[in-house]
Design a protein around this nucleic acid. Structure first.
Length: 473
RNA sequence: GCGCCCUUCGUCUAUCGGUUAGGACGACAGCCUUUCACGUUGUAAAGACGGGUUCGACUCCCGUAGGGCGCGCCA
């Protein structure tokens, strides 16, 4: 029996859980599930300047919302510094590390010079073999890892394949700062080892780190875990994902009205595939997931596809459950808490009854709310300017006759609304079907819809139509 | 600059040497619908470029171009 799979998600709490991190977490989670293992969570908070408690909360909250659970308590990397220091001591004793007395200024000069001479920017190894007795007094040294200077380091990656790095390209990285705190690459190795991580799944931006980390594993005589470096998510323009694009925190997606199952499905399909399957349950994802099906090229984030998927999930969610999700979503929407507070049992019943009509025309929960506006409208109804305009332009007789009927229809389910419009179509002798849309706009205060133009057209108000079009544009 | 990685329709992708290169989103057109939406049918749309290897390359190799990532006392 081989050892159980243990994966980990290790975000640094310097901000929210961004979409790329969410996908990394999803892959780790799915992989662990697939193999009956578990996913651990480690907060990489060794950067005391930038790490914040709210960020930790945001990450845990984001994962929870996405339905990605982890085993046990989240490990604080900072809480393990003593252990990290101890390992550094051991490396020092094994002659796998050494003290370096170069000042930040010297290093900066070294970098600048290398750049000016168009040479690779690397630490030149000044103190690697220099006699420690020559150490200048009053300077606190950093400790550098003694990276092998010949040969090569091979990252046998589950996704990237066999990636070879020449050791001469990897310089002696700092593993302990002058203030006595360990650095990332050292901490990661120690933690992954101590936590018994068997599979490291993370973004390709860590590929070079992987090589350095493997060297540390070797120096410590520890087994190197399996590694898988997955491609990054790019913005629609192919460049790095920016805020404007989608590098938002998952809570932003929640606020935009996306369902966690839709986001999960979408994210899973980004870089991973199972033949032509596009829509699948989380159980299926777990059943099908495998690193061998993860591609190596970066994927662009496509909101249109996410929306489509979200619409699908909204349509296929049972009314009761969808109502629950809708209600749970409101607190995260701007102005949503007030709306939620105003929803009593009667309103819930109305919403539930309206759900069938509502959900098939909403791609997000925000749109669902928009569609439900007619239920929330305060009576008597305040009409916006555009609606008044229509009435003034001749729609009055028709609208005036219809509005009382529509209000008395009571339920305000989309279906009765349309039925009411329908039943009066014949009576009025006009193609009133075309009025449903502008009516809704008029009754709810929603902004102009193209339908209003139709109204005027139906009523033969060419002149008004021209005027309105002019006003709108 | 150095190192590593990537390159199939606009986008996400299937193909794992032999296919009319398939699916999905989006787009466009039709149908359904007295609105919108849903649904449905159809159309357009791809192997970056140049060399090899092979009976045969999208698939393997090399090069070019383009793109990405990394090169901190950040993680």
């Amino acid at each position: 029996m081989s050892s159980p799979v243990i994966t980990r998600f290790a975000p640094s709490p310097t901000g929210y859980l961004h979409i790329g991190g969410a996908r990394t977490a999803l892959f780790n989670w799915a992989y662990a599930r697939r193999h009956g293992g578990k996913m651990l969570l480690r907060i990489e908070d060794t950067d005391r300047e930038r790490s914040t408690a709210p960020a930790v909360d945001a990450i845990l909250d984001g994962l929870t919302w996405l339905g990605l659970d982890w085993e046990g308590e989240a490990v604080s990397q900072y809480g393990r510094v003593e252990r990290h220091r101890k390992v550094v001591e051991e490396l020092l004793e094994r002659d796998a590390a050494y003290r370096c007395y170069c000042s930040p200024q010297e290093l900066e000069a070294m970098r600048a010079k290398a750049e000016a001479e168009k040479r690779p920017v690397r630490y030149d190894g000044t103190w690697r073999n220099r006699d420690p007795d020559e150490a200048p007094s009053g300077i606190k040294p950093v400790i550098r890892f003694k990276s092998p200077d010949v040969g090569e380091t091979i990252v046998d990656d589950q996704v990237q394949g066999r990636v070879v790095f020449a050791n001469k390209d990897l310089d002696d990285l700092i593993i302990l700062r002058s203030d006595g705190n360990p650095t990332y690459n050292l901490s990661v190795v120690v933690d992954d080892h101590d936590m018994g991580i068997t599979h490291i799944i993370r973004g390709v931006d860590h590929l070079t780190n992987a090589a350095r980390q493997i060297q540390i594993y070797n120096a410590a005589a520890w087994d190197v875990p399996e590694m898988a470096h997955i491609p990054l998510i790019h913005g629609p323009d192919g460049a790095k994902l920016s805020k404007r694009h989608g590098a938002l925190g998952v809570e932003a997606y929640r606020a935009m009205g996306y369902l966690p199952e839709a986001l999960r499905n979408y994210l899973a399909r980004l870089g991973w595939s199972h033949g032509d399957d596009e829509i699948f349950t989380t159980d299926e994802l777990v059943e099908w997931f495998g690193l061998e099906f993860v591609g190596r090229s970066p994927a662009r984030f496509d909101f249109a596809k996410l929306e489509n998927l979200n619409g699908h999930y909204i349509r296929h969610t049972a009314d009761e459950k969808l109502l629950d999700q809708f209600l749970n979503f409101l607190p995260f929407l701007e102005g949503g808490p007030a709306i939620l507070a105003a929803i009593d049992e009667t309103m819930k019943a109305k919403l539930l009854r309206a759900m069938p009509g509502l959900k098939e025309r909403a791609k997000t929960l925000v749109e669902l709310l928009k569609g439900a506006q007619f239920l929330f409208a305060v009576r008597p109804l305040a009409m916006d300017e555009k609606a008044r305009q229509i009435i003034a332009d001749g729609g009055a007789s028709v609208l005036e006759r219809l509005i009382p009927v529509l209000i008395s229809a009571g339920s305000w389910n989309a279906a009765p609304l349309e039925a009411a419009v329908k039943s009066h179509a014949d009576a009025a002798g006009v193609k009133l079907g075309k009025l449903a849309q502008p009516l809704r706009a008029a009754l709810t205060g929603t902004t102009v819809s193209p339908g209003i133009f139709d109204v005027l057209e139906v009523l033969g108000k060419e002149e008004s139509l021209a005027r309105l079009k002019d006003q709108v544009s």
